[in-house]
């Protein structure tokens, strides 16, 4: 039985919207357990978003339209990105909208506006966050491109659906180039999603913040959109990693059985990914901001080694 791709696309976006907060809740839960604490409910992030959505917005007196527009844009870009990455099926009408490079650029436009919003209200913290974010992004970008390069060598494509198809058809993770690219991707994803060794999403210390510093002045529905988009971004990066390196289980032809099985695989892989993420976050302190150079430098190194080992070893 065939299912229409547009239907799958709708389902996928719905999955993204609601699974992302749950995934964030799950990460939080595992993290609490790893620290020996009682965890909040899995649905806590959902409740937080609901609460924020129902609150009024308090806006700084001098905030311009950029500040008000940014949450919507960031949200929109993230949702669109979610329609492109194969989460449960590769046959997506939106898949051809962007390959991996364009996808990275889509996230970059969200970052561009977030950084501008950070500077819009004209505080020391906002500008500081923007400056740090743009610095880290510019270091992450070359590493990201190298990782894409390494992966695309194997699949001869930068289109995500194509990567899923190629990698799931027998290409194994034993391939050194993919192993290196995965390593690089993990480091980059930690930096891009603002997780612990680079940024601390749970901190209240304005002076050390990166992403939070830019969005300090947001409230109400604006904050809800930003937070939601942030959760989706984390979710999408995990899913991106899954699609590019562990695609088994994603439906490659649109038969019903495959599509029904896909979410089960997804849940399993997400659960494991969260454990991995928590292990990294619990085991590491946040690094000094200028150490990020070395961190992303090693991501670049891994990606380059991946690319080299494709030519040398494969």
């Amino acid at each position: 039985m065939k299912i229409h791709p547009f239907l799958i696309e709708m389902v996928q976006i719905a999955v993204l919207l609601f699974a992302a907060p749950l995934f964030a809740g799950w990460v939080k839960m595992v993290k609490c357990w790893s620290q020996g604490r009682t965890a909040p409910s899995l649905f806590q992030p959902v409740r937080d978003i609901r609460k924020l959505l129902s609150k009024d917005v308090v806006l700084a007196e001098n905030a311009s339209w950029i500040f008000r527009f940014t949450p919507y844009l960031v949200f929109g870009v993230t949702v669109l990105a979610g329609g492109i990455i194969p989460i449960i099926s590769t046959d997506l009408p939106l898949a051809a909208t962007a390959d991996v490079i364009a996808l990275v650029a889509l996230f970059a436009i969200a970052r561009f506006f977030t950084a501008l919003a950070g500077m819009d209200i004209g505080t020391a913290f906002g500008g500081m966050g923007s400056s740090r974010e743009m610095t880290i992004a510019s270091l992450a970008e070359p590493a990201m491109l190298m990782a894409i390069f390494a992966v695309s060598l194997a699949s001869k494509s930068t289109s995500l659906s194509q990567m899923v198809l190629v990698v799931s058809q027998g290409y194994s993770i034993l391939q050194p180039s993919l192993a290196f690219a995965l390593l690089a991707f993990i480091l980059i994803a930690l930096a891009e999603t603002g997780r612990v060794p680079v940024d601390n999403p749970a901190t209240h210390l304005e002076l050390t913040m990166i992403h939070e510093a830019m969005v300090l002045e947001y409230s109400g529905r604006h904050l809800a959109l930003i937070e939601w988009a942030k959760m989706m971004k984390l979710f999408l990066f995990v899913v991106l990693g899954i699609s590019a390196f562990f695609p088994w289980g994603i439906a490659v032809n649109d038969d019903l059985a495959g599509i029904l099985a896909a979410p089960a695989y997804l849940v399993m892989k997400l659960g494991l990914a969260a454990v991995g993420l928590v292990l990294i976050e619990t085991g590491l302190a946040k690094m000094r901001i200028f150490r990020v150079t070395e961190f992303l430098g090693s991501a670049f190194l891994f990606a380059t080694l991946g690319m080299l080992s494709f030519f040398i070893l494969e």
């Binding site: 844009l73 929109g76 909208t97 390959d99 494509s157 289109s159 194509q162």
Partner: peptide, 21 residues
């Protein structure tokens, strides 16, 4: 299959989500 990019779709897609939201 190798690589694709659609500016009109991206533009429209973002616009639609932003407006709907």
């Amino acid at each position: 299959e190798r690589a694709s990019y659609s500016a009109p779709v991206a533009f429209a897609g973002i616009l639609v989500v932003v407006i709907v939201t």
